[in-house]
Every structure is written in C-alpha cells, then in structure tokens.
Design a protein around this nucleic acid. Structure first.
Length: 432
DNA sequence: GAGTTTGAAACT
DNA sequence: CAGTTTCAAACTC
C-alpha cells in the first residue's frame, strides 16, 4: 500500500447533481478511532438483474479484524474487543451503500497487501459496537485495475488504493466458500489458510436468475455504448459480457462515461430513469418516475418495438401512438408493470393480487375455465418470484419450501375467491 | 444469418 | 418545436 492516505473518490452520478462540472470531487476520510462507517441495509429491488462478481469469505471474525485493522487511516490497528458484537454471518446478504454514505464521508475501506475489505460499525447506545462485514478480505490483482462489479454498479479499487464508487447504489453479494461453511458453523474464530484460490474474486453468472431478472447484453457498434441507444448505458449499467464494439461504457473509460452521463442528463434530465414505470392501479406519474408515452405508428403497440408493450403496461393518454391496440383491456392485468424495472409489485402484492374478479358470484362452484393459461402462468410466476425472494433472502431450503407452499395456498385461495367474485383477502405475504 | 422494419434518441 | 438522421433491437425470411 502506498503512503497515500485512503480517500474516496466519488464520481458524479445520475443521482448527484447532474449539472455539476465533470471534475471529480474527492472526499478524503481519515478514520481515527474506528472506521466511521454507517451503512444502512436496504431492500434490494427485484429488478436487480445484472451479473455480479462474488467473493469468497474468510472466517468472519478474522475478516472483520483485518478490515478494521487495515481501515485505520492513522496506522493504529483497531482490535476487536471481546464485547464487540459480531453480527451473525450472512454470507449472501446483500448490503447496499448509497451516495449519502459517501457524501457523509461515512464510508471507509481498507486496502493492504492487495486485499480489500469493508467493515461497518453500527452505532449503538450501548457500550458495545455492532460490527458488520460488508466485504470479506479479498485479494485484488494489483497489476490491473480491479473491479467488483455488482448489479451493474461497481467499486473500483485503483492501484493507489483509492476507492471509486461510480454509482450511488452499490450492492455486494458475498458468496460463501463451500469449503468454509462447515468450519464457520463450528466457529468463526478459526483462522482460514490464506490460500489465494479461496480469496480471489470470482465471477458468478446470472444463469440461475429468472429471465426477467437477467440483463440482456447489448450489441452496440457505433455508439460506444455511451448513448441511450445502448440499453446498458440507458439503465445506468456498465457493459459486461456484451457483444458491443468499441465499448466505452466500462470502468476503463470512466471519465468519458461520466462526461457522457452528464451530457445525456443535460439533454434529458429524466434519462436513466424508468420510462414506463407505473403502479398497477394508478396512472398517476410518480414524482421521480415519470411516465412517458410511446409514439408508435405501425406496430399497433403490439410489438416489442413499443416500449409500453415491452414494459407490459397499457398505453395511456400520454402516448401519441397510432392504431394502438395496447389498451387497458388488452394488457392482462397480471402483467401490468410486473416484469420490468421499477416494478410496482410490493412484497405484499403479487400478480395474482391483480386478478380481476370475474363474473357473477356463485356460492360454491367456480367456472371450469378458471385455470386458463394466464392464471396458470401467473401462479407459476408467483411461486417463482417467491422462490427467488427466498433465495435472495438466504432463506433455508426448508423455509423456502414452506414459504412457496404458503404462497401456493394463498394463490389458490385468491384464484378461487376471484372466480367466486369475492374480494381478495388482504395479503399478508412478506418475505423479509 | 442477412436484410428489413421499427421507433427512440440524437441531431439540425 | 418539427423534421431528419442515426441507431440498435425486433422482426421476417
């Protein structure tokens, strides 16, 4: 590690002042006693969809100790006290930092011997501190700029040890080393052999994610992926595993990328926001999620050329389309705003919650055609999403099964009540 | 896989 | 603001 004090360089982002000049503001942090880290954990929206790299965990206590030690800017090691409370190890827990963490200079990081760690101290009134490891100690290849790419956001460890956060939201997924799982269950104080193969960053894929959570690689040839033509860029993401040519939408062209972001925002302050977002039951524009109508002429808004159609939202009076067939009636309510970013679905609202009540109620019988393809697909979607949420919440297999079964039960009740024309039961589903 | 169509974004 | 051009994705064959 060089003699330079650690510093955090915050590049302008879409959520920071878009009109600020393009020079890079630098915020230096010099933690003295303990890393002045306050992280708030936030629920990750289910539109988190992009590939991320994961890191392998060292034993928890050791990693925290290393993080705290190396994070000390004044060279004084911070030693874990016996009464410091270590948050239980949650290997796949997703934590998010946002720009306020940076702006308040309450993020710190450690980098020494090519390792990167982040730890948090959660202030409490008691004399105990709660320590949370954000990233485990991770060996970084010092020969090149190393990047932890997470959900399209990234933390960039430059060779001098500066930390560049290029997006306001940074999510990190920490993947447990299967070899460690048993040891850590036994005790988190066992030292882990410093085998680099266990600590190198490795890339995981999103193949296990449902299709709607996967990001399609772009194929740009002329825009350098620095125009809104590029879907990656438009979504505020760096290109990754794309087939684009002459791509500048990556960490190596951060300066250009930042300029492009600023230029785009100057032209269109609503760039990088979901355009078609709407809540399922309202057409009211949300304050920072403007509705935008389509302008289709030939597709009848029934092709994916139409952004409304692709977003599975019916066209509204904001649209200027001609010959529109993408109406409230033609868009199945199960699909309304469900798949795309800015999902309206809350943890208590699923596609099945949106099933319209059909037909006149009969007391005990339901129509034969209740289980049509759409209902079946919606049911499958609910169960799939439930499973996905469990996965993201690190729910155990057993609990996942139970949760899915409960969701199935709830869906069946919902379907039957819908078929009988009865109001839906208040949903109590929660996957926190 | 190549060529065409489409509509959003960019440009004038 | 309107018209035109550029672009990348969707679509067709």
């Amino acid at each position: 590690m060089s003699g330079n004090p650690p510093s955090i360089v915050l590049l302008p982002t879409s959520s920071s002042s878009p009109t600020s000049n393009t020079s890079v503001p630098t915020i230096s942090t010099h933690p003295t006693v303990r890393p002045p880290l306050i992280l708030h954990q936030q629920t990750i929206q289910s539109n988190v969809s992009t590939p991320y790299k994961s890191v392998v965990v060292k034993p928890y206590r050791e990693s925290i100790q290393q993080a705290l030690t190396t994070a000390s800017g004044d060279g004084q090691p911070i030693v874990l006290k016996s009464n410091d409370y270590l948050e239980s190890h949650q290997p796949n827990k997703r934590l998010a930092l946002d720009s306020s963490d940076i702006n308040n200079s309450n993020i710190t990081f450690s980098s020494t011997s090519n390792t990167l760690s982040l730890a948090t101290v959660i202030p409490q009134s008691s004399p105990h501190s709660t320590l949370r490891l954000v990233t485990p100690s991770t060996i970084i290849n010092s020969n090149e700029i190393s990047t932890i790419q997470t959900s399209g956001q990234q933390i960039l460890l430059q060779q001098r040890g500066n930390l560049v956060i290029t997006q306001p939201i940074v999510t990190l997924q920490v993947q447990p080393d299967p070899n460690l799982a048993q040891k850590e269950n036994h005790t988190n104080a066992i030292l882990f052999p410093t085998d680099p193969s266990h600590t190198n960053i490795r890339i995981s894929t999103t193949e296990h994610l449902p299709v709607q959570y996967q990001r399609k690689p772009c194929n740009c040839t002329k825009s350098m992926c620095l125009k809104l033509y590029c879907d990656c860029f438009a979504n505020g993401l760096n290109c990754q595993n794309c087939a684009c040519l002459n791509c500048h939408n990556d960490a190596r062209h951060e300066e250009e990328r930042t300029k492009a972001i600023n230029a785009t925002l100057e032209r269109n302050p609503n760039a990088f926001k979901s355009k078609m977002y709407k809540f399922a039951n309202t057409t009211t524009a949300q304050p920072d999620r403007p509705l935008k109508g389509c302008n289709c002429k030939k597709s009848s808004c029934h092709k994916r050329y139409c952004e409304c159609y692709e977003s599975r939202v019916p066209c509204t009076n904001l649209c200027k389309c001609i010959g529109c067939k993408n109406t409230e009636q033609s868009v199945h309510p199960l699909n309304i705003g469900f798949y795309r970013s800015g999902q309206p679905k809350t943890t208590t609202q699923t596609p099945l919650d949106q099933i319209p009540r059909t037909g006149p109620p009969t007391e005990t019988s339901i129509p034969n055609n209740v289980f049509n393809m759409e209902v079946t697909e919606a049911l499958a979607t609910c169960l799939l999403v439930t499973g996905q949420q469990c996965e993201m919440n690190l729910t155990s297999d057993l609990d996942t099964q139970q949760t899915i079964l409960k969701e199935f039960q709830r869906c069946m009740h919902q379907i039957v009540r819908s078929a009988l024309g009865r109001p839906p039961l208040p949903s109590t589903a929660s996957f926190d």
